[in-house]
Design a protein around this nucleic acid. Structure first.
Lengths: 187, 187
DNA sequence: TGTACATCAGTGAACGCGCGTTCACTGATGTAC
DNA sequence: TGTACATCAGTGAACGCGCGTTCACTGATGTAC
């Protein structure tokens, strides 16, 4: 069963790999089919269109990231503990499936404009958490969105460096350092 | 003269605007020509191909950003002053031409793999500067590339927030805050 | 001032190509009796 | 065990479309005499 994932899973995996390696727009349905060992029309047995295939890949994962982050944000105690939990969750997500992480990293700009701003996406979870901490006086008051952006940047940019080979360590290996850096910016 | 920039400049401007608004791959030569008030074949009087047009736009600007940053990195004095100069230069570049900044932000992943690693690009200027400061004992020793990535992320992520409307202020308005945040991560 | 000619930015029409997608069909597999 | 039939993942061939690009041509502008 889990040794031989169904064709739908294999299509998703190979599509992600190709998207990350060549860019979403440079990959055709025929390319994806080839990588899976099928012909293009067979993909339509599993996905109604190319757009849905890509959308599925992005939105499902992005929402899952949001949920995992929201769990971490709900860590009891002071903000510093919640922040540490959030940073470690992101590092864990990177370690669990680096391909998926990179896919989200590279394709975000194609989707971010139409991502629902429902408070459940990763960015908003962090923004809300930072704002609450400022409100509660647990960290210095200031521009909460800016500080949240800084925190996200501190993690995402090194992930980009890893993707391009500037950094050899994955986020998981850097987790302690990343936690320390994030704690500094809210000190 | 400067009131009516030549057709080549107008093509570049409109192309950038379309690329930022719709994504590079969603914009055709006909779209660009339409925006300038020409027909597609006329573009070939100014650029040999679509690819060259886009490449020109990216590489020329990216190299210019590298030069401006290198100047800032050469600020005399301690690393903290150089860091402040670099952050303020990036903020100034954002204020000078936000469209160009956003273009680089959104299209970077299409080019970063083939950007020459000659020590002159913006990322390498910052990495080198941080590494030198660690070497000199001006900031705590550690993973220089990671710290450089954190600094870049602290600036780039808020720029992304501005692009998507999460932040209302441009980088220039946030310059003091950004300098302060960057100084914290190297403290 | 008037005429003939050179220049050159811009264009209409057309090209070949690869794309996403459709659809009638194939051929292996499982089931009924 | 053998035969007839249903199921269904997968395919070959074809579609219409928009793309980047080419090229012979147009028509306005400037220059020479």
């Amino acid at each position: 069963m889990q040794d031989t994932p169904g064709p739908k899973e294999r299509i998703k995996r190979e599509a992600m790999r190709l998207f990350v390696d060549h860019g979403v727009d440079a990959v055709s349905m025929r390319d994806i089919a080839d990588a899976v060992g099928l012909k293009a029309p067979s993909l339509y047995a599993h996905f109604p269109s190319r757009e849905e295939l890509i959308g599925d890949l992005f939105y499902a994962s992005y929402a899952e990231y949001g949920r995992r982050l929201a769990d971490a944000a709900a860590t009891p105690g002071r903000f510093q503990r919640q922040l540490e939990a959030m940073v470690r969750v992101i590092c864990a997500l990177h370690a669990e499936d680096e391909l998926l992480f990179n896919f989200l990293l590279l394709t975000q700009h194609g989707f971010l404009r139409q991502v629902p701003r429902d408070g459940r996406n990763p960015v908003e979870v962090i923004c809300r958490s930072v704002a609450a901490a400022m409100q509660a006086g647990e960290i210095p008051r200031g521009n909460a969105t800016l500080v949240a952006g800084a925190i996200i940047g501190i993690i995402v940019q090194p992930a980009t460096f890893k993707l391009y080979g500037r950094l050899n360590e994955g986020l998981a290996d850097l987790a302690d350092d990343l936690v320390a850096l994030c704690l500094k910016v809210v000190s």
